[in-house]
Simulated scan of single mutants.
Amino acid sequence: MLEDDFTYVVRKALKGLALSPGEAALRAGLVPAEVTALIDGRFSGSVARKLAPALGLDPAALEGHPGYAPKPQLLHTLRRLDIPFEDGQVNAWLLREDDVTLLFDTGFSPDSCARALDAVQAFEIDATFITHGHRDHTGGLPEIRKRSREIYGPAHDSLPGVKPLRPGDSIRTGALTIHAFDLAGHCAGALGYRIEGLTRPVCVVGDALFAGSIGGCTGPDTYATALNNLREGVMNLPDRTLLLPGHGPATTAGEERKGNPFLA
């Protein structure tokens, strides 16, 4: 199941452009009630297609969003840790490649993080990488400090016990190289991580991107920053690149180029 349905996509675009439903309807040649109905969950393909250009979204991708279901083939060495978070879930991603164990993000709380790691017998971790400072991704740090030899994260967040990384920094561990890049927008200072040395390219994107959507932004400035960073740092990757988001299912760069209304 996608993290965001079409109602969230429309709402995030409206907020990112600082548009009211009525203003968006006027731009699209629709009546406000049609846009309001879409926001309320009453989907109409024809309304979605007409509204999309007014919101800077791809018409075909928005029209097809209710049926969008990316089906990437995950590496056998990669595991999604589905960790409870309030009424939903948050992802941490565990990679075991040869003799190297890496963790990306730590979930919402030490207890939930510990249970997820114990379930897959991940008692020792070579390095942990934090995508951004929101609590649902850093709440497990007290537990991770006991298990992980090194912990890295955005310099912007100054998290205790976490070695700072900046866009352009790289960390070598075993045969793998992890390249940090700028994914600010949803969260100031957020980093993405491109992993080099696997049988196919992998990119950890945190909450900057979800399958079929993007992370929420506070307003037009952060929204523009988010879209620019995604286009420059993620959408220029090969189609087969696995994208690992902070919530919801994995996807690929190629599938998002077709099915994500913000990026298609």
Rank of each mutant, 00 (worst) to 15 (best):
G216V: 11
I178V: 15
L165C: 12
D136C: 12
F6C: 00
L103A: 08
S112R: 13
G140L: 03
A114G: 13
D239H: 10
G174W: 04
R135P: 09
L141P: 10
A190H: 03
G153Q: 02
T218F: 03
S158D: 15
A25W: 00
D182F: 01
M235R: 08
H247I: 11
E63C: 08
P238G: 05
V35C: 12
G22S: 14
R257E: 10
S20P: 13
N91F: 11
H186S: 12
G216S: 15
L244T: 08
P160A: 07
L38H: 04
K146I: 07
G259Q: 02
G168K: 02
G56L: 05
E143P: 13
L191R: 05
A28N: 06
G16I: 02
Y223E: 04
D182Y: 06
S109F: 06
C203S: 12
H247Q: 14
R79G: 01
A52G: 09
H65F: 03
P142Y: 06
K71L: 14
P201F: 00
P59I: 06
L30T: 04
L191S: 08
A250R: 05
F181T: 01
D182G: 02
P59V: 08
Y8T: 15
V47I: 14
T225D: 00
R200W: 07
L227G: 06
F129W: 00
L2C: 09
V205F: 03
D239E: 13
P201D: 08
L51V: 04
R27F: 01
I151K: 01
D99R: 15
V205D: 03
L191W: 03
G56H: 13
P238T: 08
R49Q: 12
A18H: 12
A114P: 10
L14M: 11
T36F: 11
F85K: 11
L2Q: 13
D221Y: 11
I83K: 08
I39S: 03
R231A: 07
L263F: 13
G22P: 03
A24T: 06
P164E: 04
A226Q: 11
V205P: 05
A52P: 09
S109L: 09
A184P: 04
L57W: 01
G67C: 11
R42H: 13
T251F: 02
R149Q: 14
G185T: 05
L74D: 08
L81D: 10
D5G: 11
N236Q: 15
P53I: 04
L263H: 07
A37Y: 12
L38I: 05
G216E: 13
A180R: 01
Y68P: 03
P72F: 07
G161A: 07
A24G: 07
A253C: 14
T222E: 08
K15I: 05
T131R: 00
V202I: 07
L95G: 08
L159K: 05
G133C: 10
P84E: 06
C187Y: 12
T173W: 10
E63G: 02
L95Q: 09
D111V: 14
